[in-house]
C-alpha cells in the first residue's frame, strides 16, 4: 500500500507583495495502484504539485503523507532515501547521462545500493526488457531515437521497483505514434500495480488515466 495523501498543500514563491501562489490549499488522496493524470494550463501549478509529490519541493504549508510517512518532516537524507525506495521519475527531457550507455543509465539508481554488479545488471536488463530495449543495452543515448530514450528513462525509473511513478509530460518531446507507444507502456506499468501520477497537456494521454485532475491557479477545479 502506497496511498498518497496531501492535505492543505500551499506553495508560494517569493515574499510579500511579490509572492506568487503556485498551489493554494490543495487536498488530494491517491490510492495505491491508481493512475492519475494532472492537467492544466501553463502556470496552473501542476509541475509544482508533481515536484512536491516527488519530495523535491518543500511546500509553504500543508502536509504530504505516503504510507503514513510525513514526507516533509523528514531530513534531506531521509527524503533522498524515500525517493530512492518509493518513487520513480520520468522527465520530459529524459535526462539520460550522455556518457553512459543504455544499461549503465538504467543502473544509476542501483549505484548507491548494496549488491553485486551481476545482480544489478540483471535487474537493469530486466527493466530494459520490460520496455523492449534489452537488445540496445550497449548503445549510447545519442545512438537511439527519442522514443527509445524515453523508454530508457522509464526503465531507469522502475529498475528498483518503486511503488509510485511520477511522470512529467512523458510524451512532450515525442511524435504522436511514439507517444502512444510510451503511454501504452506506462499503462502496462499501472496494470502491474504501480501508482502513476502523470502531468500532461494532452487530453489523449490523460484518457489512459483512471482519474483526471484539473488545476487552475493552484486549485483543483474538477476532482
Amino acid at each position: 500500500m502506497s496511498d498518497i495523501i496531501a492535505s492543505g498543500l500551499t506553495k508560494q514563491y517569493g515574499q510579500g507583495s511579490l509572492a506568487v501562489t503556485a498551489l493554494d490549499n490543495v487536498e488530494l488522496r491517491i490510492s495505491s495502484g491508481e493512475f492519475v493524470a494532472v492537467m492544466g494550463q501553463s502556470g496552473s501549478g501542476k509541475s509544482t504539485l508533481l515536484s512536491i509529490l516527488g519530495a523535491l519541493n518543500t511546500p509553504s504549508s500543508g502536509t504530504l503523507t505516503v504510507d503514513e510517512l510525513d514526507i516533509y518532516s523528514l531530513n534531506q537524507d531521509q527524503r533522498a532515501d524515500f525517493r530512492r525506495e518509493y518513487l520513480g521519475f520520468v522527465f520530459q527531457s529524459f535526462h539520460l547521462l550522455p556518457y553512459l550507455n543504455v544499461l549503465e543509465n538504467v543502473m544509476i539508481p542501483l549505484a548507491v545500493i548494496a549488491g553485486s554488479r551481476r545482480n544489478k545488471e540483471e535487474k537493469a536488463l530486466a527493466a530494459l526488457a520490460e520496455v523492449g530495449l534489452d537488445r540496445k543495452a550497449n548503445r549510447l543515448p545519442s545512438e537511439i531515437s527519442g522514443g527509445e530514450q524515453e523508454r530508457v528513462a522509464i526503465a531507469r525509473a522502475v529498475v528498483n521497483d518503486p511503488p509510485i511513478l511520477l511522470a512529467d509530460e512523458p510524451t512532450g518531446n515525442l511524435d504522436s505514434r511514439t507517444g502512444a507507444e510510451v503511454m501504452d507502456l506506462i499503462g502496462r506499468l499501472n496494470d502491474k500495480g504501480r501508482t502513476i501520477v502523470m502531468v500532461t497537456h494532452s487530453e489523449e494521454n490523460a484518457r489512459h488515466a483512471g482519474r483526471i485532475l484539473r488545476l487552475a491557479d493552484g486549485r483543483f477545479v474538477d476532482v
Binding site: 516527488g54 534531506q76 537524507d77 533522498a80 532515501d81 530512492r84 520513480g88 521519475f89 544509476i108 539508481p109
Partner: peptide, 8 residues
C-alpha cells in the same frame, strides 16, 4: 537527476 532518484 542524481538527487531526484535518491542519491544522498
Amino acid at each position: 537527476v542524481f538527487r531526484a532518484i535518491g542519491y544522498r
